[in-house]
Design a protein around this nucleic acid. Structure first.
Lengths: 236, 236
DNA sequence: TAAATAGTGTCTCTTAGACAATATTAT
DNA sequence: ATAATATTGTCTAAGAGACACTATTTA
């Protein structure tokens, strides 16, 4: 931290020369057998009519994470979900109006926890888009989504973060389908299950689910695996 | 991105209610067979006399990375080194004077590229500290250092980032010692070399270095491994 | 019975880790 | 020769990937 007195002229409370800070939230869910992301269509310039990641400015007395959760709830009505800081984007010209530094977050929301989407005040429209078929995006939001997908895939491989996208109980075939959708590749059934057994992240329940063939056992994530993800959540 | 017009009252150019943004740079080097970090002793309140990570406010027209590189050069005279964004810390009360959101960076500097350290204007003193024997720190800087070490260790395991801390040519024993110092554990010689061979990140040069026993061959990092790290640098 | 889906087992190759053996220098 | 350090190899166990086999349901 610099000494404030030495820099008051350019950064003290009476200066106008300071950047604004926003949070943008990349909201992922699994819908229609697809990895989808919630985007809003901008009502005003710049980029009026273009699609963008939901976000907003950080209030003076709220933490970055609180701001991201607030924006998430304002846009979707969703609370109590997994969010994680992604990266801070700060090129001086990323917003043509003024200097805006944005702290990007990822949110993972299970489909069954999603209320119907409604557009907020500042959006002409809000809807889900497939991550694999995106529209043209405002600002540097295409970069942010690119990186968000990279990070999500990465985390999926070495943590149990996938449970944040699934209902409480699920079949292993459903879990595998979720992994395949997110990773963008097919996985071997036997090896996938072997890996799950070794990792000890899921446990069988007593229930079954009929599927058209042999009924599938229902599983849930183990409490300790969930706890580990939640612990990492606060401080990656 | 939010719509600006709808929020001008609290965040437009005439508002005083916006956070300041700073960058803090955790500068690592290997010195005296130790992993060390450069800290400055604060000249002014708050935390006057306490040690802190060097940093400063982001200028209105410079990118975050440019700000981090500028601060690094102002504090140490070092240019052209590896830096990487670590995390953005934004709790409202992390600075008792005012709201400051700080984007933390990691810099890796080889000892032989370091000029003698001099304290900048805003510091009473500047010196290297062992990461394993740190003083009490101002602000939330202990958290930042903690996380920086975690990230450094992590990157060391899966990238060739170590070369940023070593001279151009080095023996494999020196490289192993560097890894051991950073990871805080001893490694098996044979397995370490086997892993290096498989990873194809280093290549032998023609030189040797006398060591008191059998002379050790000098190695350098392969260009493509270095290029990969540099490519990741801009956008993790 | 056939089709569909669930679940398990086996083989091979790679890798990680522990540890032993050999090589080359200085004293 | 001995000490010191460098370099390579060997054994074993664990893990990843390809693929085949068995199980249980519906139509």
């Amino acid at each position: 931290m610099p000494d404030l007195a030495a820099e008051d002229r350019s950064h003290g409370p009476y200066s106008f020369e300071r950047p604004s800070v926003s949070v943008d939230v990349v909201i992922f869910t699994l819908r229609e057998g697809d990895l989808q992301v919630l985007l809003i269509r901008r009502r005003n310039d710049p980029f009026s009519g273009q699609w963008a990641i939901p976000g907003g400015f950080v209030e003076i007395d709220e933490s970055l994470e609180a701001a991201a959760l607030r924006e998430l709830e304002e846009e979707t009505g969703v609370k109590d979900v997994y969010i994680e800081q992604l990266y801070t984007f700060g090129k001086p010209d990323r917003d043509p109006r003024m200097r805006v530094i944005t702290v990007a977050y990822i949110a993972l929301v299970p489909e069954n926890a999603l209320p119907p989407i409604r557009a907020g005040d500042d959006a002409a429209e809000a809807r889900w888009w497939s991550m694999y078929d995106l529209p043209s995006l405002a600002f540097d939001h295409a970069d942010i989504l690119d990186y968000a997908l990279t990070r999500l895939r990465y985390k999926l491989e070495y943590t149990a973060v996938g449970f944040e996208l699934l209902p409480i109980e699920f079949t292993l075939s459903e879990l595998q389908a979720a992994y395949e959708t997110i990773l963008g590749e097919t996985l071997d059934r036997g090896n996938f299950r072997k890996k799950l057994r070794r990792a000890e992240v899921v446990e069988a329940t007593l229930g079954f689910q009929t599927t058209g063939g042999r009924p599938a056992r229902l599983y849930r994530f183990r409490d300790d695996a969930v706890a580990e993800v939640k612990a990492r959540r606060l401080f990656p």
